[in-house]
Amino acid sequence: MNLTLKIWRQEGPDAKGQMQTVEARDIPEEASFLEMLDIVNERIIEEGGDPVQFDHDCREGICGTCSLTINGVPHGPDNGVTTCQLHMRKFRDGDTIWIEPFRAKAFPVVRDLVVDRSAFDRIIAAGGYISVRTGSAPDANGLPIEKDHADQSFDAATCIGCGACVAACPNASPMLFVGAKASHLNLLPQGKPELDIRVLAMVRQMDAEGFGNCTNHYECEGVCPKEISADVIARLNREYACASVKEGVA
């Protein structure tokens, strides 16, 4: 199939960017979206141009590296998949496709479609862990965990840290990401001792990074490739309020 691509091009973090029109010709419909871009890049290179830079690694929907806002939707039109799992058969011959980076103030553009998501690492560093020194753990079966809690915790733990939640949110809020990590750890008995400090620290870091705040649009839930529920945001709100009260009075 043949397509017209409108692609965001930006030389570097401080450069001004603009949309560029690129024709994509003879794209097999079995190709993945990223393979389509590979084909386009191959042609650009042959013709002596500068290929489009885009992030990717595993190409199987688990590493969270690939991004791209496709026709205004992070990870494109298919539900529950990442861009690397999106296939061209979702598009029609002759379509025009708009390809933009994951935009947010806290995700500055590095080049073209590649953005810097290191703010997520700093949020995790602030408190997204259980402190346990290697070698100090008790026997794994010493602490039975209710299956239901384990399952709910798992649902939250499936987050791949791609940042689509931020890209989709009108406020560029990362609360689905932050809430998912908080729920993953806070629902487990191992995570309880640090619950309050974890939540306070992660939320404060999130604010410091210049992200916005959730005003309950649920766009994040709609684009999350792992279909994580916004319930984790509700839990985060509650845990943050309780932790603040405890911090104030205790």
Binding site: I130, V132, A137, L143, P144, K147, H184, L188, Q190
Partner: peptide
Amino acid sequence: IDQCVAQGVPFAREYGGLL
């Protein structure tokens, strides 16, 4: 396995709560 469980790795569990 001990280390990972302590870190919060959500391994599959039986209904009794054990791994």
